[in-house]
Design a protein around this nucleic acid. Structure first.
Lengths: 332, 332
DNA sequence: CTGAAAGCGCTTACAG
DNA sequence: CTGAAAGCGCTTACAG
């Protein structure tokens, strides 16, 4: 494999100066159409490949966006990441991705690496990290960083775009009450975390309004935890649950199947996020739709606008969510 | 935000030449310990950030690996991507990821973009594309490209690392036969594709050996397709199925639940991939374990070895897989 | 072990 | 509209 041709080679081949080639590369209107065509032909003839590192060095945009996700294996975040990456690709940006696996040490490493690579901006769904030292490099960099879906421990360090979790769990709880449930639990999520608190607050509000007692069962937001809880509370007095997430709800779904509890009849179950699977299990799972694909596109757009305008977004409203009622709460 | 300090600033601050700083950056043994310490102090004092674009320009490794995936929303590939990214991060590489969504046009765009960004190598799970023009840029680049999990249409264009799909479906079919099943279908996957053919071949072998008739129900490897098939064949003569993937099997799982068919009793169902969910649904789903996390680490290692040694890997053996029998085939 | 010099492939004013 | 020149922040021989 011989050396890649440079703009100088292209310039020679096209019989112009390398400045002209550079201008063509940037779609400058300064170049005559005919010249532009010549240059393009030369590029094709030589199999020219643009070298972005070189461009970046001279001050151009790197065309690289960092995407830092706390848990990439969770389908909710997978969908977010895939959609965001594709939206960014449509705008001509490549995405450097990293899973921090909820580990501040990893978060520190990967964000540092992204800064070294000269990303133009970052979309961050942070892991929890009390003093947020793991975000120091990002903060120092002065890069546009859009925080999404989860507020870090240190509060609003970066502009924050998220969903209206509170109203989501409120409508879920209200729906369960309307269906006749009286002993409704909130299942899953760790109680000291912002997302949990938000998702719980709507549930709490609806319950208090209806004069019903709260029942919070905290724990890892995983299928395994949900399954365990279902097996424990099956055939008990609890007659419904709002879950922290669909993963928890799907775990409960499996646990209740195992315990012979009929969803929508013996017990009413609502998830949160509305991942694809909800409509494809049986009985179908009611859930709070977050439309994460649209949310991801919105996030990408906010970041691109920031990048283009140079002005950081301020105080973004929470994106509305919507309860999708299915068999697990309304019966078959 | 002021300009980032360069090695020249660091050199001045530390009272050495910039060459020395560069050597420290590369952990060269040529530098005296004391000098190295001085330089490191200066870097810290100035908040120096290494500029990889500049380094790359002068010939150094970019430290960037491309990861091109046909369907990032599929949990099987998500697990692969997340594990590969983390293994690469451990080796100091950042990962540029792209979902091609089975679209050759997108594949062409994103691989081109990766080459422009100067990735050092690529891990590719290609989308199907008859003439593979979408991979032309990658081929021309001469970069190390490791193809994984799926052979492209044009056959072995790049070194290929994959799992022993054939023996997996063979042991699944044999297991079903041993459990007493006689009318066993192979469900899901498009028949003209290499992965489908491989995953089917083991099933075919086992069935022919046992003198049993084949029954192939092809289609999209999705939950929705599996569910539809289950609803169609429920309470029919078919008494077992080997599925193309867990997604198909989980769709069938839901469909059978809806149809009132008892898995492991009325019908024996085996999936393929053994994603986490298999052990967390009820009845638990038997599946062919691919241990995709280990596979991803292996793939990362093969690529890193290639990068370090400069020699392309040859003829890699298929990684063994293993049937995990659970309630859906053996009964509760 | 350390320094001075050249150069990687681009972009960006500045002339013309 | 196009060209000549400088320079982005590094690494890499080459001296010393």
């Amino acid at each position: 494999m011989t050396k890649r041709p440079t703009i100088l080679d292209v310039a020679r081949h096209a019989g112009v100066s390398k400045s002209t080639v550079s201008l063509v590369l940037q779609n400058s209107p300064l170049v005559r159409d005919q010249t532009r065509a010549q240059v393009r032909d030369a590029m094709r003839a030589l199999n020219y490949v643009y070298n972005r590192s070189a461009a970046g060095l001279r001050g151009a945009e790197s065309g690289l966006i960092g995407l830092v996700i706390n848990d990439l294996r969770n389908p909710f975040f997978t969908e977010f990441a895939a959609s965001a990456q594709m939206a960014l690709a449509r705008a001509g940006y490549a995405t450097v991705i990293a899973n921090t696996d909820e580990d501040p040490g990893l978060q520190e490493q990967v964000t540092g690496s992204m800064v070294e690579h000269g990303v133009s901006a970052v979309i961050l769904c942070p892991c929890y990290d009390r003093d947020e030292t793991s975000l120091a490099a990002l903060k120092r960099s002065g890069l546009p960083v859009l925080q999404v879906l989860r507020q870090g421990d240190a509060g609003p360090g970066f502009p924050f775009l998220s969903l209206d979790y509170a109203s989501g769990s409120e409508s879920a709880a209200r729906h369960l009450i309307e269906q006749g449930a009286r002993s409704i639990a909130f299942v899953g999520g760790f109680e000291n975390r912002p997302v949990t608190l938000e998702r719980m607050s709507g549930y709490r509000l609806a319950m208090e309004r209806a004069g019903l007692p709260l029942k919070v069962i905290s724990g890892r937001p995983s299928r395994a935890f949900g399954r365990r809880v279902a097996l424990e509370i099956a055939h008990g007095e609890t007659d419904a649950a709002v879950c922290f997430s669909d993963l928890v709800a799907l775990g409960m779904h499996a646990g209740f199947a195992e315990a012979g509890v009929r969803l929508g009849v013996d017990f009413r179950l609502a998830g949160f996020d509305d991942i694809e699977e909800c409509a494809l299990v049986w009985p179908q799972l009611s859930s709070v739709r977050c439309d994460i694909a649209s949310f991801a596109e919105r996030a990408a757009q906010v970041l691109l606008d920031w990048l283009n305008s140079g002005i950081a977004p301020v105080e973004m409203p929470r994106i509305p969510v919507q309860l999708i009622a299915r068999q697990s709460t309304t019966g078959p």
